[in-house]
Design a protein around this nucleic acid. Structure first.
Length: 858
RNA sequence: GGGCGGUUAGCUCAGUGGUAGAGCAUCGGCUUUACACGCCGGGUGUCACAGGUUCGAAUCCUGUACCGCCCACCA
């Protein structure tokens, strides 16, 4: 039976419908009824699977969260209504540095991976003055304990916002399953030689004391200065260089100029002497040296920046490192191998003033030394220049040589570009970000971090008789043992007391980069290792929603891991959301204090109101959030209230019902069918904002024009057949509009649906144009024309009445309308009743001619 | 330096070849039996700029400017 004409379900209407309390009511009922539970009996073709971003739970909730997660939920709800089994789990990203920092402060502990695990360890009630050292597994337990609270708060927000997540399926990026997936993928990649270990110069944060990856860099404008410094060529001949980092002069291993630079050609192959320290360094030629920069000749240090690394590698230069992992200048003995100075005593005197200093302090000291020695030419010229930082770091990155794990990326550039082309991007232009990144890959992905809270590398190393580690023959666990923590677990064939002893073993002390786990979210949630049946039904997945700032990290690495492990694209679509910005169009950030807590907004505007605001933003676009301005949320709330009232009106009187014969009814439904077709197309293309806008426009006209025009007839003024036509049409329209709105405004639509329809609107069938016009035996073009003429004429009469300041009820004894509106004649009865026109004529007039009667309408 | 978005009413923004739109704000009117958390109406624009294609351009092409973002080996 077509919807809307079902007589079997009783209608129960509230006297005064309201939005208050709908969230509490429906989120509980949805949970109870399992409305959003994933049906894992369905075949892959009937599944829509979503790789939802796990929010960083240690971060604060902010308005950006409700924004982008609403977009995904709209898509999820749409596909669910189209009959798909929606696989929509939620994860929590509790991995990584922010959590680690919080745990240290909250519990007053410090991770020491050399300690053994203590099962009975409990942190003190209050953090003490001195942090308590704990083992890595103990530390991870505390991280899990603390983040569990954060996760509850996020879940509360998501449920209140109405996300249609299946809450029986949650995961955390540090849970055992995630660890097992990460370690298994790592071991398999290691066996395939797509993972390798290398001692090499690595980007290094001196505060966190860890390696960081290219993807985690950001440039920040910093004040600096060019220092012009002379190097002695011979006798009184000097060559001058410019540098922003004069403190690295002791680490200088060469000078470099462009091979075609005539000024320096005579120097190539010769040695010069570094100022202060008297070290002989060669002058080299390399194409990356830019004659336009500085004096055209540059100092190569180990290591000042990434270019230094390139030069060092390609020119086969020695290492002369001065900066320790904590950023301090290390002790150096001049005269030792590699530090043969022309005047070791003098060099030592200068250098000793630098030892133990941090780079910025050392710079001040050395500038003064250079000034006094006469090697500083002129005064430093202040500039502002971009400097590389770790995204979460506070001081510029250094480059330090260390042993790290890498996943190969550069070798797979072509394959990854092809996957990027295969992926369907919404919006399409975000594809360029990915291509930019892949084309700019400078080196393989460093995945090891010298931190504690994260997934450990499942690797031990044999200790030789002389106590050194044998990195060439790592000891690997079988996959069946995973996950392991090599800092406390013992490799097969060894005893625990052999840890750290000659001929014993040592665990790899590092953990994986957080993205090394996050890049496997499709595998984690799809049951890659432990649930092949589920895996076959949901993987490769349908959708990865995420923000554009993590295309180079999360999206890229996920594509990479799926390529390495499965040789497939991990999902067919990605929907990229924009940012919430503050009124200055800057990205919102906690440090600027402009973060708005979402619970207050939900309280004030209702979940549907907040969702309306989120859904109004076009896909991928940044949206300004100004708490000081009246927002779209108010409009959304108003729309939700209007839906309540309009539905109540339609349902107040549903009898008689019968054939839909009247032109206005048929025209309205024909237009609605067009709307439905359009909305379906747009949602298929992820253009949710258009769907909301168009549905809303239709709905508002439905209320203010259609309902007003048919009111009289509906009340029975023109007999029961006319009333039956109106009632039946109204019910079809209501049912259809509720379903179109359902993905956007899940609470109010569910409330109204519950007044008269069985089941949930969210598992009802998404409307189809054919279904809408089935009630009138097909789309009716003539009726559409009548509707259009009637609406035009209605606007015209309203305009004249308003200009003349006539009350709505004023009776018009005689009206002559422009002939263009004559098409309304089949609906003249409805039209005249709504406009109180007694005698209606059409003529050659430019605007409506109205003669008002003396008496008001009855 | 390369790339990507944006520039439309006072504000926030729709609008991808056919008479310039919505909401908010503002002003005026309406006690109308679903809704005053409502309804009707008015005013408001060199569609950033300059060329080009076209019968016709906010829309397509070329270039410029400004805003924002991404990327880059930034001495």
């Amino acid at each position: 039976m077509p919807h809307g004409t079902d007589d079997t379900h009783p209608i129960s209407l509230p006297d005064k419908p309201a939005l208050e309390g709908l969230e509490e009511k429906w989120k509980a009922r949805w949970q109870e009824a399992g409305t959003y539970r994933f049906d894992r009996s369905r075949a892959r073709a009937d599944v829509f699977s979503i790789d939802t971003p796990p929010p960083t739970v240690s971060g604060s909730l902010h308005v950006g969260h409700v924004f982008s997660y609403t977009h995904t939920d709209i898509i999820a709800r749409f596909h669910r209504m189209r009959g798909k089994a929606v696989f929509y789990p939620m994860g929590w990203d509790d991995n990584g540095l922010p959590t680690e920092r919080r745990v240290q402060n909250y519990y007053g502990v410090r991770c020491d991976p050399s300690l053994p695990y203590e099962a009975a360890f409990q942190p003190p009630d209050k953090p003490g003055k001195h942090p308590i050292p704990v083992s890595r597994p103990n530390f991870i337990e505390l991280c899990v304990r603390l983040t569990a609270e954060d996760e509850k708060e996020f879940e509360r927000l998501w449920r209140h916002l109405g996300l249609s997540v299946d809450w029986s399926m949650t995961y955390a990026t540090i849970d055992r399953k995630s660890q097992r997936v990460s370690q298994t993928a790592f071991l398999r990649e290691l066996k395939r030689d797509t993972v390798y270990q290398l001692e090499a110069p690595t980007l290094w944060d001196i505060d966190f004391r860890t390696a960081v990856a290219q993807a985690e860099l950001e440039d920040r404008e910093q004040p600096g200065a060019y220092h012009r410094i002379r190097f002695q060529v011979a006798g009184s001949a000097y060559v001058e260089i410019e540098t922003t980092r004069p403190e690295l002069i002791p680490a200088c291993v060469a000078l470099v100029a462009h091979p075609d630079d005539e000024r320096y050609r005579p120097l190539f192959g010769k040695n010069v002497v570094t100022p202060l320290f008297g070290l002989e360094v060669p002058v080299k030629a390399h194409r990356l040296a830019d004659p336009e920069k500085g004096s055209g000749v540059a100092m190569i240090c180990t290591f000042g920046d990434i270019t230094d690394v390139t030069w060092w590698r390609e020119l086969s230069l020695p290492v002369r490192a001065v900066i320790l992992p904590n950023g301090a200048f290390r002790q150096v003995q001049f005269g030792d191998p590699g530090w043969e100075s022309r005047d070791a005593a003098r060099a030592q005197q200068f250098y000793d003033a630098l030892a133990n200093l941090q780079p910025i302090k050392a710079r001040g000291v050395i500038v003064e030394q250079l000034r006094q020695s006469g090697d500083l030419i002129g005064e430093p010229k202040p500039i502002t220049h971009p400097v590389k930082f770790y995204q979460k770091g506070d001081r510029p990155l250094e480059i330090v040589t260390s042993r790290q794990w890498f996943i190969k990326t550069v070798d797979y550039s072509e394959a990854l570009l092809a996957r990027g082309r295969e992926l369907q991007w919404h919006p399409e232009y975000m594809r360029h970000r990915y291509e930019n990144w892949v084309n700019g890959l400078a080196g393989d992905w460093c995945i090891s971090r010298q931190r504690f809270f994260g997934v450990p590398f499942p690797v031990w190393y044999p200790i030789r008789a002389d106590g050194t580690l044998d990195y060439e023959r790592p000891i690997l666990p079988p996959e069946s043992r995973l996950p392991v923590d090599p800092s406390t677990d013992v490799p097969d064939g060894y005893r625990a007391d052999q840890r750290g002893k000659p001929n014993g073993f040592a665990g790899d002390p590092d953990i994986m980069d957080t993205w090394a786990t996050s890049s496997l979210t499709p595998q984690v949630i799809s049951g890659w290792l432990d649930d092949p049946d589920l895996f076959s039904r949901v993987f490769p997945m349908d959708l990865r929603p995420q923000a554009h700032d993590i295309i180079r990290t999360w999206l890229f690495t996920t594509v990479l891991r799926a390529e390495l492990e499965h040789h497939v694209l991990p999902w067919s679509h990605t929907a990229i959301s924009g940012f919430i910005t503050d009124p200055d169009r800057k990205k919102m950030s906690k440090s600027k204090g402009n973060v708005v807590t979402p619970f207050g907004l939900l309280q004030e505007h209702g979940a549907d109101g907040v969702r309306y605001w989120a859904a109004s933003a076009r896909p991928g676009g940044d949206t300004v959030f100004d708490p000081a301005l009246p927002s779209q949320m108010k409009i959304g709330r108003r729309l939700a209230i209007k839906i309540l009232n309009a539905a109540r009106f339609a349902l107040l009187q549903t009898d008689p019902r019968g054939a839909i014969t009247e032109p206005l009814d048929r025209g309205m439904l024909s237009a609605l069918a067009d709307l439905v077709e359009d909305c379906t197309r747009q949602l298929d293309a992820y253009e949710y904002s258009r769907v909301l806008e168009r549905t809303e426009a239709f709905f508002w006209a439905f209320c203010d024009d259609y309902l007003e025009l048919v009111k009289s007839r509906r009340y029975g003024d023109f007999g029961s057949e006319g009333a039956a036509s109106a009632n039946s049409a109204m019910l079809v329209a209501l049912s259809t509009l509720l379903r179109l709105f359902a993905p956007f405004l899940p609470f109010v639509t569910e409330e109204v649906w519950s007044w008269w329809r069985p089941g949930s609107v969210h598992t009802a069938t998404w409307p189809a144009g054919d279904e809408v016009v089935a009630a009138i035996g097909g789309r009716d073009d003539q009726a559409l024309a009548v509707r259009e003429a009637t609406q035009g004429a209605l606007a015209e009469v309203r305009r004249i009445k308003s200009l003349l300041k006539k009350p709505t009820k004023a009776v018009i004894a005689r009206a002559v309308l422009p002939a263009a509106f004559a098409g309304l004649q089949p609906a003249a009865r409805d039209f005249q009743a709504a406009t109180h026109i007694r005698d209606l004529q059409f003529g050659d007039v430019a605007e409506a001619q109205l003669e008002f009667a003396e008496e008001p309408a009855a």
